[in-house]
Computed example of a mutant assay.
Amino acid sequence: MVERYFEALKEVKDPEIPVLNIVEMGMVLGLEAEGEKVRVRFRPTFSGCPALALIREEIQKALKAAGAKEVEVVEEKTPWTTEAMTEEAREKLRAYGVAPPLPLPMAHQDPPCPRCGGQRVVLKNPFGATLCKMLYQCASCGEVFEAFKAV
């Protein structure tokens, strides 16, 4: 039964990055089911994230659609880091045109272009469409792209 609920959570997308779900983002810390009652422990990617209320609602809806009668969503204060993202999430970001976060020891470096893989990139703005991304331009292919910040 827990597997069914866990699979349902994979349908909850990050509203700011719709190609990723909250499981592959590393936001889900635990899931417990007792009968028709489900308790989910999760952590937001950034404190004060404007999508937090929507994510909580989507968790509730997904679990109820999977058969839960009662859902408790507990927000943990454990800090999230980009190291929690799965490799699948990183590949999905790259395919979406967003440079995935670099490993933390390399966070000070510029990311390669997700379109051509070029290493010659220029930071255009430390903020992209959301606070968790930066805006770059690739000198090799000329594309402007967002890069997910490593935290």
Rank of each mutant, 00 (worst) to 15 (best):
L135H: 05
G67T: 02
T45D: 01
F46Y: 12
E87S: 10
G117Y: 13
E3Q: 14
P50L: 09
V40H: 07
E143N: 07
A68I: 08
T78S: 12
L52W: 12
E7T: 12
P44R: 13
G128K: 13
F148W: 06
F42P: 05
P100E: 04
C116E: 02
L20P: 07
Q137A: 04
N21V: 10
V144Q: 12
T45C: 01
L31T: 03
A33G: 09
M1V: 15
E32S: 13
S47R: 14
R120W: 08
K133Q: 03
P105E: 02
V19W: 00
P126M: 09
I17E: 07
S47W: 14
Q109P: 08
P100W: 05
K61W: 07
C113S: 04
P112Q: 03
A129V: 12
E146Q: 02
A68D: 07
H108R: 14
A51V: 13
E87C: 06
P18R: 11
M27H: 04
G48T: 09
S140F: 11
C49Y: 07
V74S: 11
A107D: 04
A33M: 05
E11N: 13
K64S: 09
C116P: 06
Q137P: 03
K10Y: 08
M25V: 02
G117H: 00
A51E: 13
R41H: 13
C116Q: 05
C116A: 01
L29P: 05
P114G: 02
V122Q: 12
V28S: 04
A95S: 10
P79D: 01
V74C: 09
L29W: 02
I59H: 07
T86V: 05
K133N: 03
G142W: 00
D110G: 00
R56W: 02
E32N: 13
T81A: 00
R94G: 07
M1C: 15
V144S: 03
V98P: 06
K10R: 14
L93S: 07
V23R: 00
P79S: 00
